[in-house]
Design a protein around this nucleic acid. Structure first.
Lengths: 191, 191
DNA sequence: ACCTGAACACCGTTCAAGT
DNA sequence: ACCTGAACACCGTTCAAGT
């Protein structure tokens, strides 16, 4: 008579999906594996999630919100713009080191129709836009934010994919990038 | 008596795999789909390729060689370093526009063991290293090349994933990035 | 209202059997 | 020496039946 209460939740499903993603890559995020982790049969997941691509979309969404929260928490609007840039870059890299697969997925082609929702997208972008505005002024904030995100995302993606195999210090390369962009912005400010 | 001659080849398989990759994403690169394209049954592919992950590895390898060739062909060692950087950045972006899925795969986690061979990796990196050396000197070439690749790869990955949705000119953002990096390098040259 | 077992289509892979 | 059909394990998904 009484309808059975939910034995799992979308939150648990997303949490276990993220865990599987980091431990085994996207291929390991299987409806069967997620179901087993949350203690339910595969078919039951469809009561909580439309299908597997919606689940992957939810993983990306959760990741966007998390990185946005981390970066916003680390940002100090009262600090010097260059210090804010350094902190932002280090924060993104730290997040990418902790969650490499999820971070790589942030800007990947998912299914044809699948794309990040407007709100999570805004949450992730806000801290970068704020720092870019401080560095380059409000009317140059958007292109500068895109450049900063591209560098920091590209670098960390390559790093966690194991692309830097010619020796040398990867940390030094990252600092070089941050410094070059900061110097470029400083040079332009007077121009 | 006479053994049957091969009805397909690794080259055709790779070519059709790349075509499927660009038209439908990595999920569309199915042993069945590739086999049908090359006119053979799925099981026969295993005479030419170890398994699906080796096939994907071959797609990445072919892409690395192709982009290395394109970038090297466009580079003019006699040109001014800044012009060479601009040409390199535009060349990478043009390649990524023509082959977005393959370019994104260049620095993706593939299977656990799977990683790009040394030779294709070197072929792809060589033109970037050459331009970086011209811009920053031989002893700073490696970190600078990493920074340039990170920006250009990150930007084009985000662009083809449809990440730039806040309006504004994406072209302008790309030029901003190239100019910032060039300015940063120019400023540092005297330091 | 959620969970399950059974079923289906599809995919990667192997292998004995063909030529 | 390469190709094929048959077979197997696995995966995503649906749905009628349970509680």
């Amino acid at each position: 008579m009484s309808p059975t209460p939910a034995r799992t939740s979308r939150e648990r499903i997303v949490a276990e999906g993220l865990s599987l993603l980091e431990s085994g890559g996207l291929d390991a995020v299987t409806m069967a594996a997620v179901a087993e982790r949350v203690g339910v049969k595969p078919a039951s997941l469809y009561k909580h999630v439309r299908d597997r691509s919606a689940l992957v979309g939810a993983l990306v969404e959760a990741t966007a919100v998390a990185i946005g929260r981390d970066l916003a928490a680390d940002d100090d609007p009262a600090a010097a713009p260059r210090a804010r840039l350094t902190s932002l870059a280090h924060g993104y890299r730290a997040f990418a080191t902790a969650h490499p697969r999820a971070t790589a997925l942030l800007f990947a082609h998912l299914g044809e129709g699948v794309s990040l929702g407007a709100e999570p997208s805004r949450a992730a972008a806000a801290p970068v836009l704020a720092v870019a505005a401080a560095l380059a002024g409000p009317d140059r904030a958007l292109p500068v934010a895109r450049v900063l995100t591209a560098f920091v995302h590209g670098f960390t993606t390559m790093e966690s994919a194991g692309a830097f195999r010619l020796g040398g210090s990867v940390d030094e390369a990252f600092e070089t990038g941050v410094a070059l962009l900061a110097d470029g912005l400083a040079g332009r400010r007077g121009a």
